[in-house]
């Protein structure tokens, strides 16, 4: 049970003046239950890559295998794939359209030919999981606050009970507390539902705190892939492609350069704290 991406290439508007190769020879294996951070700046190809994983965009070269089956086979059911690989777009609240929160969340499961009871249960369950209180369920989604709208939109994808959940910049535009709340919720969903989660982000601090593996994209290529500690040890190369490691990684490295022999693999505040205290206390 996994996603295998083999030699994936994608070119926008081939043969025109706007031709642009968005993905170049990407090969990755994503195992069940992983929590992955996909990082890169705008135009690095990360948004294009995730749209390949549920078949919304078809590669111009290479293959994608979902649980062993080639999704580009003529008889492969792409519609079913889209329910297995849930994709939450950037600013997902802009896709809300129903008259009530519950109805909007039901839209996905209703497309799955389930019984009405099952549709209700899934929608309700998803709303609970993203922390929408009962009294908002029959409210119009347009009356909610920005953060609440975003949760409802995430619930809309969650209600399809996907095996893989991909979120494109789920914290964009939120305030610091709102960012933490959404990320905590996503981590909780990952733990409780035992599903694969791919978090697209450009905040290193956020990603380092939650994920087990980081994939860094640059100019359509996957340039780094590994555990956060391993990837952020390349902080100087990351800077070269316009990205940066968490601030604390810089801090421990700078301490080391000054002759204070701290461990330099810290990527979170807690790890850096432990590293510095270990030296200070001797």
């Amino acid at each position: 049970m996994s996603i295998i991406i083999d030699q994936l290439n994608y070119t926008y508007s081939p043969g025109t003046a706007y031709e642009k190769q968005a993905l170049k020879d990407i090969s990755l294996v994503i195992e069940d239950g992983e929590f992955i951070g996909l990082i890169g700046h705008t135009g690095s190809g990360k948004s294009t890559l995730i749209q390949h994983l549920n078949g919304l965009v078809k590669a111009t070269g290479g293959s994608v295998y979902y649980n062993g089956a080639d999704i580009y086979d003529a008889d492969y059911n792409l519609k079913e794939l889209r329910t297995k690989v849930g994709l939450v777009f950037q600013y997902p609240e802009h896709q809300l359209f129903e008259t009530t929160v519950l109805k909007d969340v039901q839209f996905g499961p209703k497309n799955l030919s389930l019984t009405p009871l099952e549709v209700d249960l899934r929608a309700y369950g998803a709303l609970k999981q993203v922390g929408i209180p009962d009294d908002l369920i029959d409210a119009s989604p347009f009356e909610l606050s920005g953060g609440q709208k975003r949760r409802v939109a995430i619930a809309g994808v969650l209600a399809m009970e996907p095996e893989v959940l991909i979120l494109d910049e789920p914290t964009a535009g939120l305030d610091p507390k709102g960012r933490d709340e959404i990320l905590d919720q996503i981590a909780k969903i990952h733990d409780e539902r035992h599903i694969t989660v791919i978090l697209v982000s450009h905040s290193m601090e956020d990603v380092a705190k939650y994920v087990g593996r980081i994939i860094v994209m640059d100019h359509g290529r996957a340039v780094f892939d590994g555990a956060p500690k391993k990837v952020f040890s390349h902080y100087k190369e990351l800077e070269g492609i316009g990205l940066a490691a968490p601030q604390v990684t810089y801090a421990v490295n700078a301490l080391r350069e000054r002759g204070i022999l701290v461990k330099t693999d810290a990527t979170t505040v807690q790890e850096a704290k432990a590293a510095v205290l270990a030296v200070w206390k001797g």
Partner: peptide, 25 residues
């Protein structure tokens, strides 16, 4: 369109009324 497709929306099949209804989202 892509976001609604990701929620299982179908814009390609069905008669004219079904397709028109699919445009609402």
């Amino acid at each position: 369109m892509k976001a609604q497709q990701a929620r299982g929306a179908d814009f390609e099949s069905g008669g004219i009324i079904k397709r028109a209804k699919a445009m609402i989202p």
